[in-house]
Design a protein around this nucleic acid. Structure first.
Lengths: 269, 269
DNA sequence: AAGTGGTCTAGACCACTTT
DNA sequence: AAGTGGTCTAGACCACTTC
């Protein structure tokens, strides 16, 4: 959209002695600025293009050289910007091929948000069974977490996920009606694969980060019946808020995990 | 220890036309090598110095320029090596001051491994009460996780941690006797602050990474009594294996967390 | 052969900290 | 003023992929 160079808060003119001696980057050099490095500005511009859909999930973005020309900066500066985007899993670099927009339609991405692993054997993605889909008004607590107003339109989803036919997860989701307009039970039921893939493809909303709070709880009657276990069985309760570009919360999810033969895997670095 | 340059798998001679035309980096250029980039080799050398204690936790390491001279590479290469070490929390960079070896004696580091947060209010570090310390022989399962042999010497520790006087965590630890020779109940009880600080200062063993498996369980009689709760109360069970340099496992820990007024916090990126 | 990301270098200047 | 990490540039070459 904007091929012009971002404001230059450093005197890049340097070079030979021919440079005008009084380039005067003066004016506001210390008053209010909050300057950010060039590569951060480039990163923000690239992120904008990702968010706007200029480059769609799975697609190739322009090469480093091309972006350097577009933004009128050196390749090294573009590289540093993309390095950070890759570290945040917004893009993926592949030597010799290029840089691709990340997508949830990839085996690699499936376990980035689902951390429940079998105690033994290789992990694989569970089957999903939709229990309920309905339109509701946002209760105060949900509204607060999703940065909405109490009473705003929400879509509520309840489902059960099974590994090898064994029901293991009961999940409830609250989605802003505004963002997921047109989401139906039919569409959810016929869709195979991670829900985030559907959100990405059909609603243009990509989850890029999430925060979870985990507790131990007792199975209530409803959960016990859905999971085929005794009431009172201890379950792991994971409450997740997911964010899309701009740190905008767009999903609240409460999952109850049966951890008899699975565990929540976490790496502390 | 080794100020000589690492093997150079790239022809760095370049420069002007005076370079000998037949530098012949030939020989094994494609047979078995598993070459690694220069900055990875530098990173490994720096890590060795960290592990050997040449620079101790909290101390300043040599400047980038100094390291570049020592290793006979450019500052940029040292920088990339240190960037990765900083990303792994092995060192901390501070503009204008230098690069410091990370330490567990820092408020900043306290919540890197303890992820239990109060549902409301600001997080603070719990008080610890040692229940039991004894020497045992490694059971098969513990030995396997710690990369030891069944029957090897272990130190077993049991403690309770409280927030504002409320018992919230029951924890059991298994430590290799070899690594933590001389660890006594007295030393543990008189020590204030995170146990990893003690391990780092007194035993030269720094935890740099950990893997946790989390489940929901019911409180048994022992845990219930220590936490002052009813038997059968759901608890979060976190089993952690911690690693020091070289990905060597040096601690097994099983914590039972009361999540009535706290939760396990996790960020998914 | 051409294009991409990955590595390495050398030099300049900036921002911050200490002397 | 001097030293440190932080940013930016320009150019070279390497490793990998595709044509």
């Amino acid at each position: 959209m904007n091929p012009v160079p971002p404001n230059q808060n450093q005197n890049n003119t340097a070079a030979s002695g021919t440079a005008s001696p009084a380039a005067s980057p003066a004016s506001a050099t210390g008053s209010s600025p909050t300057f950010s490095p060039l590569y951060q500005q480039i990163k923000a511009l690239i992120t904008q293009s990702l968010q706007s859909g200029e480059w769609k999930p799975g697609e190739l973005i322009p090469s480093e050289v091309e972006l350097a020309n577009r933004f009128k900066v050196s390749q090294g500066t573009v590289r540093k910007a993309i390095d950070e985007l890759a570290a945040e899993n917004l893009v993926m670099r592949r030597q010799g091929k290029g840089t691709f927009v990340s997508t949830h339609h990839e085996a690699r991405a499936h376990f980035r948000f689902l951390r429940l692993m079998p105690d033994e054997g290789v992990p694989h993605y569970p089957e999903s069974k939709i229990i309920e889909v309905k339109r509701i008004r946002a209760p105060a607590d949900v509204a607060r977490l999703l940065d909405l107003k109490t009473g705003d339109a929400l879509i509520f989803i309840k489902r059960v996920q099974s590994f090898d036919g064994v029901p293991t997860i009961v999940e409830e989701l609250w989605l802003p009606g505004q963002t997921f307009k047109g989401l139906t039970a039919e569409r959810l039921m016929e869709y195979k694969g991670p829900m985030y893939g559907l959100f990405e493809s059909e609603f243009g909303t990509r989850m890029i980060r999430a925060a979870e709070k985990i507790r131990a709880v007792c199975a209530d009657g409803a959960a016990a019946e859905l999971l085929g276990i005794a009431e009172g069985t201890p379950l792991l309760c994971a409450e997740r808020v997911s964010f899309t570009y701009g740190d905008k919360p767009v999903e609240l999810r409460r999952g109850l995990y049966l951890t008899a033969h699975h565990h929540y895997q976490n790496e502390l670095n």
